[in-house]
Structures are given as C-alpha cells and as structure tokens.
Amino acid sequence: MERILVKFTKINNIKFISHLDTMRTLNRAMRRAGIDIMYSCGFNPHANISVAAPLQLGIESVSEYADINIQSTVDLKKFKDSLNNALPLGLKIVEAVKIEGKKPSAMGSVAAASYSIKMKAMKTTEDEIKKVIENIMSQKEIVRLKRTKSGEKDVDVRPFIIDIKYVDLCEEELSLRLLLRTGSRGNISPQMVTEIIEDFSNKSICNAHSIVREEIYAQKNEKLIDLCSYLLGE
C-alpha cells in the first residue's frame, strides 16, 4: 500500500457540485484512469479517498487536498497525468506526492484555510472599509447561530476568525483575504464571515459573489504551514 497526497483545484462551473458529488467524481476518475485504489473493508466497500476539508457548493478552490491509498507503487507523473486525463474540466491535480512513514491524515491535520473573496462595496472608501475590519477584529465576542449535528446553537465565532485583510477596491469591487479556523477543532465558513462584514458595515459592503479557497494549513507549534509541506515534514 502507498499513500499519495494530491493537491487539486475545483474552479469554474464545477464549483456548483456538492462535496459528495466531488467525491464520487474523483472516485470514478480513478477508475477510468485505471489507478489501483484501495477499498475499505466492510459491507459496502468504498474507495479509500479522503478529502481534507469539504468545500461548500458554490466556493472555488485552487488548493484542495486528498489522501489516496493505492495498492501498488506508481510513477507519480504518470499517476498525475492519467488522473488529469480522466477528470472533468475544473478539477485538476496540480501536485501528487508520496507520504512515507507514520504521518497524520490530511483531514486530521487541517487547522486553517485562507480565502480570497470579492464583495460589492457601495458608497464607501478604503479607510471606512479598514475601520469595519478593525472593528470586527477588535470584538471580544461575536455570537452567531451555528448549525451543528445536534441542532442549532449560539456560538462565539470570533476566535475562528484569525485575520481579515484588505486587498484592493476597484470600481465598487472589494477584494479581501480571509484566514479562518478550519477543521474539527474549530471551524467557520467564509459565508458567515461575509455576513458579519455585511452587518458591521451596515450593508455598505455586501453581495459576496466570488469566494476562492487559496490554501489549507496545518499548525506546527504556533505557525501555520501549508498542508503539503507539513505532511512532507519540511
């Protein structure tokens, strides 16, 4: 058995398929590419592919990660090329690396993710926008209704917002960069952050029409390291 970590994109129209549909599509691409995936044992064997952090429908990503367990040794370039030939437009493997030794799973390593978002900013200035961001970041607590497996409850989401950065304002189109807690130890969706921005700006900033996940990070000591480097142990 061999463990391969792939980094892939999910851009353009394919952002309109759900996480489950993405998994199914990846699985079928492996089969078409003739890759010897490992199957889980049990009643309903399924392919051993696990995506590090599910991506919500409608959000694009230039760095998704998945662990794939395969039966026999492969040439990584061949692996990547044959898989890319089998994938639909928008899903593309950009990197495939072997993970050797005892390492945590990609999914278990996720600590944060960065997003670049575009929102509409009407009748406002760079300074005003920066003040809104400062205001959000200086809050001790931001309570929001969160849906969990056990129902809905109020949660303080402020600790999950690591950073909001102003990037650019051009003809009412505002670009921001978000760094957010992601994964099982704390998670906030970029949509919720855009809603918070809407609220704090009294809707002068609204309509998040493009969200792209830029990177997924693991945490080592106090530092965030991209998942690939982290799992390769660099």
Partner: peptide
C-alpha cells in the same frame, strides 16, 4: 441543485 445546468460531464 445548480449542477443540473452546468453540463461539463464525463
């Protein structure tokens, strides 16, 4: 289900 309208299938 916007995936109904995007085509681009295998």
């Amino acid at each position: 289900k916007p995936g109904r309208y995007i085509g681009n299938e295998i």
